[in-house]
Amino acid sequence: MEKFWERIYRPNYITGYNPFIIKNMNKAIERMVEAINHREKIVIYGSCDVDGICGLASLLLILKYVNADVEYYIDEGTGISHTLDTDALKNHVHFLGAQLLITIGCGLKSQEQEYLCRELGIDLIITENKKMKANNGAIYINPSQQGCSYRYKNLSSCGVAFKLMQAIAIYYNMKSVNRYLDLIIVGAMSARVENTGENRVLLKEGLKYLKETNNYGLRAIMDFYNIKEVNEDSIHKMIDVITPTISAVGKKDNARIVVELLTTNDKYRAEQITKYLYSERNR
């Protein structure tokens, strides 16, 4: 049966295509709304690559916007085959008090992890985009999963996260979700997505929003490196700046610093973090 928030969807309401065509999106939104309304702890789990970081940061921003109780965890793993870490689930995600765990570009390593989350009282929403057959007890948001009729299969991790964000925006009747495309384009370009289908739309619209971004972190990078024109070269420069480095601080900690940069509402803090990242790269 069609849900009431699906009926309000209009193609011109939001950039891209109807996210509710993606298999399990209704289930994901119902669980997320329940968590938001009951102030359950939501934890977003992402990887250290720029695609994962941008997806995590943008989802974190929109969940804070709707007043969710949300934290995040960064894993050191990168790549399209990235999966959840069992020790992280036990010692970090559970420690944060997670009742709902949302992954960005990460799948389950084994069914035992699903059982572990169930024992810990953690519900799972897995967002990823690789061909798979298994459909476990977790809620999967995956355009490439078996039985999903969504046409566009080549989205990046942050692209899939944006589909989830679109669904949240439709449910809450938000008209400002496209402003997060400034982060989505950076993540998508770092993942070197094909400039076809929906990716073409996201990249084209993202460029518009990046040029006029009000994200303090992105703006601080542009100002510090004297980026006057936003184009493919300058976006790759931004990607280079926010790619976590292995240093004395540690790759995971640097990734957390980048998330803070991309989500802070403090202009001065954004400028300080940008200077710190510059010094880390030039040690």
Rank of each mutant, 00 (worst) to 15 (best):
S234T: 09
A255R: 03
S156N: 05
H82Q: 12
M1G: 09
A57F: 02
G206D: 04
K275R: 15
M174W: 12
I273N: 04
V177K: 07
F224M: 12
I102Y: 04
Q272G: 12
A169M: 02
H82I: 13
T15D: 06
A68Y: 05
L202K: 01
M189K: 05
K131M: 07
Y115G: 00
E212C: 09
E112T: 10
N231C: 07
L124M: 11
R179I: 12
F162D: 05
Y150V: 07
P244T: 01
E2L: 14
Q99Y: 14
D253W: 13
E271S: 14
K175F: 15
A57L: 07
K252R: 09
E232Q: 11
L277G: 06
C158V: 11
N37R: 11
A248H: 07
Q113L: 07
L262K: 02
A35Y: 03
Y140K: 06
I21A: 08
P244F: 07
Y73K: 06
S247I: 05
L116Y: 04
R10T: 13
E260M: 04
N195M: 14
K153H: 10
S110A: 05
L277Y: 05
E30F: 13
K41W: 12
A134N: 11
G206Y: 04
R39H: 14
T78Q: 13
T83W: 06
I62R: 04
M32Q: 05
Q113W: 06
S47F: 13
P19S: 06
N37I: 10
L89Y: 06
L207P: 02
E194R: 13
L164P: 07
I168H: 01
N265L: 08
G250W: 09
I8P: 00
N154Q: 14
V66N: 03
W5Y: 15
G77Y: 14
Y209D: 05
N18C: 10
N91K: 06
T213R: 03
D51A: 03
L155K: 00
G159F: 01
I221Q: 10
N67Y: 12
I273M: 12
S149C: 11
V249E: 10
V33W: 05
Y17G: 03
N226K: 11
S156D: 01
N226V: 13
D69G: 04
L277E: 03
S156P: 00
E205G: 01
K204Y: 13
I14C: 09
I257G: 01
N214T: 12
N173E: 15
I22C: 03
D182F: 10
E114S: 09
P143L: 02
R10V: 09
T15V: 14
I170P: 00
N282T: 12
Y9V: 06
H92N: 11
F224T: 10
I62V: 14
